[in-house]
């Protein structure tokens, strides 16, 4: 699903990612662990080009999205991302947070079709061979209704439908993060990236967020999770990557990594955190 080929990232003179090659397969749940500053977040953010790689390729569905010439916005729609700090849009209600991107994208597609049809019609007036128009079988209002219904369905799923019209500032951290997750889901992503989704939460709210992520995992969502929750990584991940100093030092199944780490740096790290 995602092929990462010799990915490098530097900030000035600091090389943060030193040549990472890996493949995220469909259905996998990959956990990334490692010490602070080892480049986990940078790696994850390169996967949807939130950070532009300095060199290397990110092949997502056959397209190298690290290439500056591709329209990254189209590909990002299929890669959900969840941040440590939730990053709900503060100026929008919960339901508008969820609806913003799907609604904007669907409506601008409709608008584009209408504009194209206008030019085809114009052309058809002057030329004998008539070109067919693009089919338009929805209206703006219908699209809005659909997107809203889907957003409400997702809100119901996490039991927060009564918060639809609330602003993010009135919610708890756990609620914010669960809404951030379904905001990403509203785009029907093929893969989800999580960057320490529970690190900014009060301990009593960690469970509700991990439960939701676990549900998604059980439904077969492909996911890459940077996490400090070793128990969660062990339980949910199908593969664990241990990163240190900008490289993947060791990767294996959770059982092997946690019970039988091979690399001395992995051993040292795990002995500190477990």
């Amino acid at each position: 699903m995602i092929d990462i080929i010799d990915l490098r990232k530097r900030y000035g003179n600091l090389e943060v990612l030193k040549g990472i090659t890996n493949t995220i397969h469909e259905g996998e749940k990959v956990a990334i662990i490692g010490p602070s500053g080892s480049g986990k977040s940078t790696f994850l953010r390169c996967l949807n080009c939130l950070e532009d790689p300095t060199s290397g390729q990110i092949i997502f569905e056959g397209v190298n999205i690290a290439d500056m010439k591709v329209d990254i916005n189209i590909h990002r729609r299929h890669i959900g991302m969840v941040f440590q700090q939730f990053n709900l849009f503060n100026n929008k209600t919960v339901i508008d947070n969820i609806m913003l991107a799907p609604l904007h994208i669907k409506i601008s597609e409709l608008r584009k079709k209408k504009i194209k049809n206008f030019f085809i019609k114009l052309r058809n007036v002057f030329t004998p061979d008539k070109k067919p128009l693009y089919e338009i079988n929805t209206t703006k209002a219908q699209i809005k209704e659909e997107v809203r219904a889907n957003a409400m369905r997702l809100l119901k799923r996490i039991g927060l439908e009564d918060k639809a019209n609330a602003f993010p500032s009135t919610l708890s951290g756990g609620q914010k993060q669960r809404i951030a997750i379904i905001r990403a889901l509203a785009m029907n992503p093929k893969v989800m990236l999580f960057d320490e989704p529970t690190s900014a939460l009060d301990p009593e709210m960690v469970g509700e967020v991990l439960d939701l992520i676990k549900q998604l995992a059980d439904e077969g969502m492909t996911m890459v999770i940077v996490t400090h929750e070793m128990g969660f990584a062990r339980e949910v991940a199908t593969r664990v990557l241990f990163m240190d100093e900008g490289m993947i030092v060791e990767e294996n199944t959770p059982e092997e990594i946690f019970n039988n780490p091979r690399n001395p740096r992995t051993k040292e790290f795990l002995s500190k955190v477990l």
Partner: peptide, 23 residues
């Protein structure tokens, strides 16, 4: 404005311009 706001908008596939105008 917190840079995370722009990042979140970009991450759901909105362009730079749309992210700026809407968020």
């Amino acid at each position: 404005v917190d840079p995370g706001q722009l990042e979140a908008a970009r991450a759901v596939g909105l362009s730079f311009g749309v992210s700026m105008m809407k968020v």
